Simulated assay, not measured.
Amino acid sequence: MLGGRGAGKTRTGAEWVRGVALGEPDFAEPALRRIALIGETFSDARNVMVEGPAGILSIHARHERPTWSPSLRKLEWPNGAVAQVFSAEDPDSLRGPQFEAAWADELAKWRHVEETWDMLQFGLRLGAHPRQMVTTTPRPIPLLKRFLEDPMVAVSRARTSDNAANLAPVFLDAVVGRYAGTRLGRQELDGEMIEDRPDALWTRDVIERNRIESAPPLMRIVVAVDPPASSSKRADACGIVAAGVDDGGTAYVLEDVTASGLKPPEWAAKAVALYRRLQADALIVETNQGGEMATGVIREVDPSVPVVSVRATRGKYLRAEPVSVLYAQGRVRHVGALPALEDELCDFGPGGLTSGRSPDRMDALVWALTDLMLREKKEPRVRVL
């Protein structure tokens, strides 16, 4: 099921699982029913798929509601059906268990989407008719494209507007009113599979071609920060992206922990935490927004962190273009999936993003890769991630 934000995907998936557990005639006997629930993370699976307002627990009548054991990551129905909860961040956790049904939520955001999906297929080996339900806002990733071409896959679609009666009027006015008809709105509201923007600096094919599961030993790692001008609710996000370079001159984009609505001490702490976890060499901070405040607030969090201040003297497109060339040359690789960052890259053209918002993730990426690949070489030190 491909759907927009608030279109009812979670409710649909939860109702499907309820039908499986309570006795659809073409499933096995209740005592044999085994169901897998896979979310982007365990927290997402628990908070959205199981405990959420449209989740499994909320859509059952009291007498048929399953018992939820968070510590065991397990739902048990009175009739003997059992559902186990898994995280797409840990594909190997799907080795061993076996099921006759599975619900996969927001698959297009999974970090290890191909590996997790493959492990799930090997586990769907019970009953006469194993089946699975995918609910996601679409992104043009290879796996979803294969689904759409597969005659064995039934595809349903839902738009945000189809579920307007159950959504806050303020949301409909503010979000639907702003993005309706735009490229981003067609994907996030109408549930359409939107391909690359023709004039974008990046293409998904190039990113996919250079994706790897883990990085090799790296000579230098940096965390780049593109701070917002303010911390108000309407402020831009704080771009925070980590990247490294190996001894052969290939760069690896490691993580994107960009966040919105944070006050300066909060985004500074987030950036410093990533710096420490990756044992990075420096924090690269753009000082156009906030000037010395940006570097000062980081030093308040940890005065020992080496901070490199950078200032933009050219427009975003001109700064980003040399970095996109590095991708085209096969000199940059993404470690795992970075869906929000990749969406931004593949939607950035001469006029900016189609949404009109600031490309904060891309800006942070550009600063990181510029430092690693397009400046005078720094003294390296080898480490293994």
Rank of each mutant, 00 (worst) to 15 (best):
F99W: 04
S324Q: 04
G23H: 00
I298L: 15
I240N: 02
L254H: 13
V241H: 10
A7I: 00
R276Q: 15
E64N: 01
N166C: 00
E321F: 02
D150W: 08
P142T: 03
D347Q: 14
V301C: 06
L365G: 03
R111G: 04
G349M: 03
L274Q: 07
N210F: 10
W367M: 06
D190G: 04
F147S: 00
Q289I: 10
T12C: 09
P339F: 12
D118V: 09
R33K: 08
G248V: 11
E344L: 05
E342S: 07
V225K: 06
G39T: 07
R319T: 09
P53S: 13
C346P: 03
D173C: 05
D371N: 11
S58R: 15
L144M: 01
V384W: 13
A158L: 15
A271C: 06
Q187F: 08
G352T: 02
P130T: 13
S358I: 05
L107P: 07
F122P: 07
A104T: 14
G123M: 09
L369F: 03
G6P: 04
G80E: 04
P339N: 13
A229M: 05
L57K: 12
A229L: 06
G185C: 13
A154M: 09
G249E: 03
R211L: 08
P130F: 10
T258H: 07
R299P: 02
M219W: 07
G356N: 14
Y275R: 06
K316H: 06
L107R: 02
I298P: 04
S71G: 11
A101I: 10
M219P: 05
I35K: 03
G352P: 08
T295K: 14
N210D: 15
D205V: 13
W110L: 09
